[in-house]
């Protein structure tokens, strides 16, 4: 099996603010790597065999690649918008496929059962129809007009609201969520999930946010997002098989899962298969 297509992608490998000259020893797609920030402030990523790897610093994180990235890291224009609070949520390790972690992030139907009384609550379980497309210009999966009733949609929300979401998959292990912004109607809060594939069934997940929220202390914002992700973690570690099945016969999607269906097809078409299971076993 070849994983060439994903070798050339950018992956998060550390929080820039947490790094210094002492190298962080980690891994990327099964290979050991070391990440450090030198005294003059340049990030450096080295592979186990001493090779210097490509580096960029963006969205609070250091990004690298084992291969030769064909294009710059995807843009999130909102990240540079004045007035936003940028939140480094920190790393959380999960024993699951990096692709399963992204797919779970794209899913809203689990909110009432896994994020009970925060992102969803019975009996408000219905997923209304939404739009899914692959935007050809940027080659990204997008889901729009996703609406869901949420008891406490954000740290800044008080009481239940129907929240609108847009999901965007700009890279095989990265997802950007645009979400109704309670303090500033007309703008979108940006919540991302950047996933570092350590192995096909092991990943370090780096959530990151760019929010309009002056009122909530930074630590509360971090704790809110860590809470949400840790509720997902026990699900992700108990899915069988651990790899994401790309064989359509293996799992049963419904209309609520159209984003996941599009994501899996897009992965398959690009041969983005690191962490995927191609044939049912």
């Amino acid at each position: 099996m070849t994983h060439d297509a994903m070798i050339d992608e950018w992956y998060p490998v550390g929080l820039f603010s947490q790094l210094d000259t002492n190298a962080r020893k980690t891994a990327l797609m099964g290979r050991p790597i070391e990440v450090a920030v030198e005294a003059e402030g340049h990030a450096r990523v080295t592979s186990g065999d001493g090779r210097s790897l490509p580096v960029c610093v963006r969205y609070g994180h250091v990004w690298s690649s084992l291969g030769k990235p064909q294009k710059d890291l995807f843009a999130i224009p909102e990240a540079d918008q004045p007035g936003r609070t940028l939140v480094d949520v920190g790393v959380i390790r999960v024993r699951c496929s990096p692709l399963r972690a992204v797919e779970n992030f794209l899913d809203i139907a689990h909110f009432p059962f896994v994020h009970t009384d925060i992102l969803g609550a019975e009996p408000h379980t219905e997923v209304q129809d939404y739009k899914v497309e692959v935007r050809q210009d940027a080659d990204e999966v997008w889901a729009t007009q996703v609406k869901f009733y949420q008891p406490q949609a954000a740290k800044s929300a008080s009481g239940g609201i129907t929240t609108e979401y847009m999901y965007r998959v700009p890279a095989p292990t990265c997802c950007v969520l645009y979400k109704t912004c309670p303090p500033r109607p007309g703008e979108w809060d940006v919540i991302t999930l950047f996933v570092q594939p350590l192995a096909e069934d092991l990943c370090d997940v780096w959530p990151w946010m760019a929010l309009f929220d002056d009122a909530t202390p930074m630590t509360d914002l971090i704790h809110f997002q860590q809470t949400i992700f840790l509720q997902d973690r026990s699900i992700l570690e108990n899915q069988i098989p651990r790899l994401l099945p790309l064989d359509p016969g293996m799992e049963i999607p419904t209309r609520a899962d159209l984003t996941s269906v599009a994501y899996r097809r897009w992965l398959k078409r690009h041969n983005y298969t690191y962490g995927a299971q191609l044939v049912a076993q």
């Binding site: 896994v114 019975e122 860590q226 809470t227 949400i228 509720q231 973690r233 026990s234």
Partner: peptide
């Protein structure tokens, strides 16, 4: 009360 990683006992809620 729960904490992340300890899920709600959904069986306590009545079926709709």
């Amino acid at each position: 009360i729960e904490m992340p990683g300890i899920h709600r006992l959904h069986e306590l809620k009545r079926e709709h």
